[in-house]
C-alpha cells in the first residue's frame, strides 16, 4: 500500500472521522424503532377515534410523518447523549458510541428528517399538526435531552410529555383542532411514563449513576422511587379508565382498563411495600407490565372502533 493511501481496516479512529461506515440498519436504529412503534400505534388509535375520517393516503402520510418525526427526535437524542451512552451497558452498543456512525452524520440525519417530517405533515394535513410535531421534536431533543435529563430527577416526568404528544398530533391532523379526547390520551401516556421508566431505572440505577444522570433512584434512593411509582400509578389508573367515563369508549374498554389497571396497581403496591430483596424482580415485572398496560388500553380503543362497539352513553356527556 502506498503511504498516501489509507486502508480503512487498519486506519486509526482519528483518520476515519468524517467517513461514513455504518450500514442501513445502523441508521434505522438511530431512529429508536421500538419507541417509533409505540408512537405509530398511539397515533393510529387517535386517528381511528377522531370524528373526521382521513383519506387513507393522507392517514398513511400523517402516520409516516409522525413516526419519522419521532425517529428524528430519537436520533438527535442519541447524537447529544453519545457521551453518556458510552458508559451505560444498555446503550453502549448504539451506533454512535460503538463507532459505526459519526456524531456529525447523526446530527445531520436527525435535522434533515425533522424538517422533512414536519413539512410532509403540514402539506398533507394542516399546520397545527405540523407545529405540534415540530414542538414535540424540539421538546424531546432540546428541553428533555439537552436540558432536563442531566439537571433534575424530574427529567422523565416533564420529558415524558414528548412521548405523549403523538395522539394529540394525529387528532389535530384529522380534525384541525385539539379537544378533550386527545388530551385524555396525552395524560394517560404522560402519567404512564414515570412508573414505566422509574421501574427500569430501579434496575439500572448503577448505569445512570456511572453516567451522572440524576434519575430518581440515584438522587432520592430506591425507597422514594418505589413510593413515587405507586403515587403516579394512583393517578394513572383512573386516567386509564377515563375514556369510558367521559363517553368516548365503551363497555369493552371499561372492562379492559379496570382489569389492567388493577394489575398495575397491584404490582406498584407490591413494589412499594415489598421487601428490599424483591425490588429488582418486581421492578422488572412492572416495567414489562407497563408496556402491556399501555398497549392494552390503546388496543382496546382500536378494537372498539374497528368492531363498531358503541361508547358508553352518559347523561350530559356526548361522545
Amino acid at each position: 500500500m502506498s503511504d498516501a493511501r489509507i486502508d480503512m481496516d487498519t486506519a486509526s479512529d482519528a483518520t476515519l472521522i468524517g467517513v461514513a461506515r455504518g450500514g442501513v440498519g445502523d441508521y434505522v436504529s438511530l431512529l429508536k424503532p421500538r419507541v417509533m412503534s409505540l408512537v405509530v400505534f398511539t397515533a393510529l388509535v387517535a386517528l381511528s377515534l377522531a370524528p373526521v375520517p382521513l383519506h387513507p393516503v393522507i392517514a398513511i402520510a400523517a402516520i409516516l410523518a409522525i413516526a419519522i418525526g419521532a425517529g428524528a427526535a430519537g436520533c438527535l437524542n442519541m447524537w447529544y447523549d453519545a457521551d453518556i451512552d458510552r458508559v451505560m451497558s444498555r446503550t453502549k452498543v448504539r451506533p454512535i458510541p460503538s463507532g459505526t456512525v459519526e456524531p456529525q452524520e447523526a446530527l445531520t440525519f436527525g435535522i434533515t428528517l425533522s424538517v422533512l417530517s414536519v413539512a410532509v405533515l403540514g402539506l398533507a394535513t394542516n399546520w397545527l399538526a405540523a407545529g405540534l410535531l415540530a414542538f414535540t421534536i424540539f421538546f424531546y431533543a432540546v428541553i428533555y435531552t439537552m436540558w432536563l435529563k442531566r439537571l433534575t430527577p424530574q427529567n422523565i416526568v416533564i420529558g415524558g410529555a414528548a412521548g405523549a404528544f403523538p395522539p394529540v398530533i394525529a387528532w389535530a391532523a384529522a380534525t384541525g383542532t385539539v379537544t378533550l379526547e386527545p388530551i385524555i390520551l396525552f395524560l394517560i401516556i404522560f402519567f404512564w411514563t414515570p412508573p414505566h421508566f422509574w421501574s427500569l431505572a430501579l434496575v439500572r440505577s448503577g448505569d445512570y449513576q456511572r453516567a451522572g444522570v440524576p434519575m430518581l433512584p440515584v438522587v432520592a434512593g430506591a425507597d422514594e422511587t418505589r413510593r413515587q411509582i405507586f403515587l403516579y400509578s394512583l393517578i394513572l389508573v383512573p386516567l386509564g379508565i377515563a375514556p369510558a367515563g367521559l363517553g368516548f369508549a365503551g363497555v369493552f374498554y371499561l372492562a379492559v382498563s379496570v382489569l389492567l389497571g388493577a394489575g398495575f396497581l397491584w404490582l406498584a403496591w407490591k413494589l412499594y411495600r415489598g421487601a428490599g430483596s424483591t425490588v429488582g424482580p418486581v421492578a422488572k415485572r412492572l416495567f414489562g407490565y407497563s408496556i402491556l398496560y399501555l398497549f392494552g388500553l390503546f388496543a382496546a380503543l382500536l378494537v372498539e372502533r374497528l368492531v363498531g362497539l358503541p361508547a358508553l352513553a352518559l347523561p350530559g356527556i356526548s361522545a
Partner: peptide, 10 residues
C-alpha cells in the same frame, strides 16, 4: 505511487 485517498474494503 498509487492514487492518494482512502481505500474502502469490500
Amino acid at each position: 505511487m498509487g492514487e492518494p485517498g482512502i481505500v474502502l474494503t469490500e
